[in-house]
Every structure is written in structure tokens, then in C-alpha cells.
């Protein structure tokens, strides 16, 4: 599984670049790198459906980012400003938060089942039943369309909501004078 670790570290590195780089276009591209590494990780962990969706969504996300950056500005001018006391405070709080979060999550993650050995309490029933009852070859499709179909309705609704939301927000005039 060495490639998994490489990809994880690559995505972390690309993430840092995306956050810290001054050119916003470059940072959107770095974000794309993170997204694609995530997609490849999905393939590595035997989730091809996820990888496909992730790639589609990633392309869309990058396109949206690029569109927004082109519409606004592509240099992060805020990085040029001098550090104020407030910024040091923010960084300090982040460091404190990060340390505690890491410590607690390490000790919490130890109590999880080991990586690569999921419990699969419900899932084993799905796998046992899935093919016979639903006649679906793809079990993920069976889950999203049948067992947990309501979530998929919710997913579609979220997408619909955000489309309407974006349309609402992009109106030029909201209030009648």
C-alpha cells in the first residue's frame, strides 16, 4: 500500500501549496491536484464509483474556481499585508487547536478498528442479500438507489437547492426600491 501513503502525502503537500500560494489560479490548480489524488486514492481503496464522481466533481469545482477567479482577481493581495497582532493571535489559536485536536484524535483513532479491517455489520447483510434480492451487480448502486434511496433523493435535493441558491444570489437586483 505504499502508493496510498505517497498519494496521501502528495495531497497534503498540494493542500499546503493551495493554501499558501499567492497566485489564486495556481492555488485552484493545486486544489485540483488534491482532488485528483483523492480520486486515485478512491481507486486504490476499491471505490471506482467514487473515483468517477470525484473526478467529475473535481473538474466542475476547478472550473467554478477558475471562473470566479477570472471574474474577480487572481492575486491574493491579502498576503502582502503586514502581520498584525490579530494575525499572530489567530495563528496562535490555530496552533493550540491543532495540537489538541491531533493529540485527541490520535488517541481516539486508536480505539477505531484497525485500518483495512472494517466491522461491516450492516454491509455484510447487504452483500449477502444484495445480488439475490435486487439483482444489482454494483453493490454501491444498490445501496444508494435502494437501501438508502432516500439519501440519494436528499443528495439530488441538495444539488437542486444549491443551484436555486446560486441563481438567487447571482440576481442583480434583490429588493424593489
Amino acid at each position: 500500500m505504499i502508493e496510498l501513503y505517497i498519494l496521501l502525502i502528495a495531497s497534503i503537500g498540494a493542500g499546503i501549496v493551495a493554501v499558501e500560494i499567492k497566485d489564486l489560479l495556481a492555488s485552484a490548480i493545486s486544489l485540483g491536484i488534491v482532488g485528483f489524488s483523492v480520486a486515485i486514492i478512491f481507486i486504490l481503496v476499491q471505490a471506482p464509483d467514487l473515483a468517477i464522481v470525484q473526478i467529475v466533481v473535481e473538474v466542475l469545482t476547478v472550473i467554478i474556481f477558475v471562473a470566479v477567479i477570472l471574474k474577480t482577481t487572481h492575486i491574493d493581495t491579502t498576503l502582502e499585508n503586514k502581520m498584525e497582532v490579530r494575525d499572530y493571535l489567530t495563528k496562535g489559536v490555530f496552533v493550540i487547536f491543532g495540537i489538541f485536536f491531533l493529540i485527541f484524535s490520535i488517541s481516539a483513532l486508536k480505539e477505531l478498528p484497525e485500518f483495512g479491517k472494517p466491522i461491516m455489520k450492516i454491509a455484510s447483510h447487504y452483500l449477502a442479500k444484495g445480488f439475490e434480492e435486487i439483482k444489482a451487480a454494483n453493490q454501491v448502486a444498490a445501496v444508494i438507489l435502494d437501501f438508502r434511496g432516500y439519501d440519494t433523493l436528499g443528495e439530488a435535493t441538495v444539488l437542486f437547492t444549491s443551484v436555486i441558491g446560486v441563481l438567487t444570489i447571482l440576481r442583480k437586483i434583490g429588493k424593489k426600491k
Binding site: 471505490a47 454491509a123 454501491v140 445501496v143 438508502r148 439519501d151 436528499g154 443528495e155
Partner: peptide, 10 residues
């Protein structure tokens, strides 16, 4: 496990 994949899709 197919369930997390379904959830992540959402």
C-alpha cells in the same frame, strides 16, 4: 464496505 462509498457519493 459499500455503505461508506454510498455515503461519500452523497
Amino acid at each position: 464496505d459499500p455503505i461508506p462509498q454510498a455515503l461519500v457519493l452523497t
